[in-house]
Every structure is written in C-alpha cells, then in structure tokens.
C-alpha cells in the first residue's frame, strides 16, 4: 500500500514537472540549486521511512502469530 502511494506521488510529481518546465527550473535553480540537494536527501529519508513502516508491520504480524 505504502509503495503504491509513493509511486503515484512520484508519477504526479514527474507529470507536473513536465507540464511547467520553466517555473520548476526557476524554483530549483535559485541560489545555486540547493533545493535539488534537499529533494535528494528527502527522497532517501522518505524511502527509508517507508521501509521502516513495512518492517514495523511485519513485526506486528509476527507478534500476532505468537499469541
């Protein structure tokens, strides 16, 4: 479920970006493109947290089985 939501968000992001190239470039390019770095770091954090949630769910299932 988590993965699907992330995939859809990413797709929407991609489509939006292609629709308004100029505005996006302006947004990311001001002050030496530092926002691109933040986008990259955020996407790594998002990915790892999505994975943590999955791990959490797996452990919950295990605990349920134990009872």
């Amino acid at each position: 479920m988590n993965r699907i939501v992330i995939l859809i968000l990413f797709l929407i992001f991609t489509l939006r970006c292609q629709a308004q190239d100029g505005a996006l470039e302006e947004y990311f390019f001001e002050s030496g493109k530092i926002k691109v770095v933040i986008a990259v770091a955020v996407s790594i954090a998002t990915g790892l947290f999505a994975y943590l949630f999955r791990l959490d769910k797996k452990i919950k299932d295990l605990e349920k089985n134990k009872k």
Binding site: S31, K33, V37
Partner: peptide
C-alpha cells in the same frame, strides 16, 4: 552542477 555537487554524498 553548482550546489548539487553535495548530492555526491547521497546518491
């Protein structure tokens, strides 16, 4: 590249 060179340490 500008500031995005910092991505080297993430990507």
């Amino acid at each position: 590249i500008f500031d995005t060179i910092r991505n080297l340490n993430f990507h």
